[in-house]
Amino acid sequence: MRILKSAVPIFCTAAAARANSAGEPLSPTNIFAPASTPADTISGLSLLVLTITGAMFVIVLCLLLWAVVKFREKAGAGPGEPAQVYGSTQVELAWTVIPVLIVTILLLATARAIASIQNAIPPPGAVEVSVIGHQYWWEYHYKKSNVVTANELHVPVSSPVHPTPTFLSLFSADTDHSFWVPRLAGKTDLIPNHPNSMWIDPRETGVYLGQCSQYCGVQHAKMLLRVYVQTRDEFDRWLEQQSGPAAASDSTIEGRRTFESTACVNCHTIRGSTATGTFGPDLTHLMSRETIGAGAALNTPANLRRWIQDPSAFKPGCLMPAMGLSDSQLDAITAYMETLR
């Protein structure tokens, strides 16, 4: 029946995702392919809720189908009215008490999951990162180091033996945003003047995708998230590399001068240069990122040049303006950007 269809996709999705979570997942952002403790806890609770609601669905569905088929008016039946029944206290009591019991079970399971996720205390080895939401991009500050980067979050892999979870403090510089990487944790909002926090402890290396999930303005759709989970060594090397100043190269001095003499410096920081703006992403190690424009495009030289020329070609409505640069200025700045490894 058509009614059955409605529940089937949900349950199939859940089941297929479980079966596939080891191999090729159904989607890189499937909530039923968890790879971190908060996402595991949620997935476990969700399957319990799905099982209970699924059972309730099947029972009530059968009763309803039985009633609407069995008690339809039959062609040969007489003209009289059926027996007039006004109610039954016992029956009504039954279908009040049973749901109360079911709700109690669900409440207890839910309360336990809430507490285990929300009340977790950071262990000594935890990595702490401040996440600041901006209109259409993410800014990350790594505590205990001077690393500032954007859009692509790097965190160490965590294991039960040596837990190195990452605790995120969430802030917003402008409107509301929401940090959502489904395979790692549920979402938490970034609200101005209302600090929040969340944590993840991914157990497998790799790239985890997500995006802003609270409407924040014109380019809400292209405020994508990439979380790179690395081994502890790789992560430490990355942190070391990111904490240094920008690479200096004489061959691109013209591009650097152009950059420093235009309005670019009002919004962007390149550590080791005169550019100290904080309105846009830190570009000190731009070329270590795989994407630009919060995931709007791959970070290739051609895309980078096009982006500097006219950001709205990739992201109409984004806050970076087209600077009206000449071709030679564009070439020079792009060449300079390409040295920022």
Partner: peptide, 23 residues
């Protein structure tokens, strides 16, 4: 349909499930 809507409502009422599904 209201039965299904009510049951998905229970899923969303389980706050951690909602942290994934909300929005």
């Amino acid at each position: 349909q209201f039965l299904i809507a009510g049951l998905t409502g229970i899923m969303l009422a389980a706050a951690p499930f909602d942290w994934q599904l909300s929005g």
